[in-house]
Simulated scan of single mutants.
Amino acid sequence: MPLVFSDQDLQTHNTLGLPARAAVATLDDESAIPDLCEALSSGRETDAPLFVLGGGSNLVVAARPRRRVLRVALRGIRLWRETTTHWFVEAAAGEPWHGFVDHCLSQGWPGLENLALIPGTVGAAPVQNIGAYGLELDQRLHSVVAWDLRAGRERELRADECGFAYRDSLFKRDGAGRWLIVRVRFALPKAWAPRLDYPDLRDYPGLGSPTGGAGEIPSPRSIFDAVCDIRRRKLPDPAVQGNAGSFFKNPVIDAGQADRLRHRYPDLKAYPQADGRVKLAAGWLIEQAGWKGRRLGPVGMHERQALVLVNHGGAQSADVLALARAVRADVQARFGVDLEQEPVVLD
């Protein structure tokens, strides 16, 4: 059945809770995609470029975006195949990410527990190359099944073909409207080992044993529960207070600049990278610049986590972008470091 775009409210489809209306169609059946590609290639769909929407958790949306919105609601999870070393699990792009992680654990397929409680959908996860608590998505991803809407064909891209980088991917760099991810496949290791390098997990009291015993190997479920608890204590719930999670990327700078900053700021939060550069904690920079808990009109940086921009009520996209510019300017003026925002803009 052909997709039909109609004027719809998007306020409940972006976690910042910004008021917006756009021409929206919902994709819940892959059989509609070939017709969409044919319409795009023939010029029948020329009103405005497409924007593919997942859970809206990484989005700043204008009140009346010019782009049409394709909301992905494809569902389904299956064990795609199994080897002696891995479970290969496939999930449809519209599956809620946190529910997918929980489902994998319930089936005895660990490996994604460090990424618990991240908002959004499975299909959006590779676009941003999500990561948290010492694990990046590309470390567990096998392949992505996506339609190249420009070429009008479905492709399977291996992990090494996705152009993954820190909070970045081929799907993000190629621009909105080209790639429509329909399924994502994960390689979950049977020789599972806990990932507890991140300080919040390493220091979590009693983590690891279902019985709480000291020295026992943590269970995947106990790590999942710990991550959920840590995130709930540190981060606001988008259902209660509008936000898009971490609003800025942690900047990566060269070692020389990091050394100069350490000389001026001995408490600088800095982490050496494999390529010799140094990653800084954007939240620490923002807090030192005086923005933790500070408001600018109806928006502000969260009082417990300076990296999270929150909507205190009634905000528009212009308010969000004005605050982002102010924070970036103050961090640049104080530290000489450029911050890059994570959420994409739908205008």
Rank of each mutant, 00 (worst) to 15 (best):
A176E: 14
G177I: 12
R178Y: 13
L180K: 12
L180R: 13
I181Q: 13
V184G: 11
A187W: 04
K190E: 02
W192S: 10
R195G: 02
L196C: 10
L196E: 08
L196H: 07
Y198F: 09
L201A: 01
L201C: 02
D203Q: 13
Y204N: 04
Y204K: 06
Y204E: 05
G206W: 04
G208A: 08
S209D: 15
P210N: 11
T211Q: 14
G212Q: 07
G213Y: 06
A214P: 04
G215A: 04
E216K: 12
R221F: 08
R221V: 07
I223D: 13
D225R: 12
D229E: 07
D229Y: 00
I230V: 10
K234I: 00
P236M: 01
V240I: 08
Q241A: 07
G242I: 00
A244F: 07
F248Y: 06
F248K: 00
K249A: 01
N250T: 01
I253P: 05
I253Q: 02
D254T: 04
A255S: 14
A255W: 00
D259H: 09
L261E: 12
R264D: 15
R264I: 13
Y265W: 14
Y265L: 10
D267M: 09
K269L: 07
K269T: 00
Y271D: 02
P272W: 11
P272F: 10
A274C: 03
A274H: 10
D275E: 08
G276T: 10
G276D: 11
G276S: 11
R277G: 13
K279C: 10
L280G: 09
A281G: 08
A282Y: 09
A282L: 10
W284M: 08
L285Q: 09
Q288V: 02
Q288Y: 05
G290A: 06
G290P: 10
W291Q: 09
R295D: 12
R295A: 13
L296A: 15
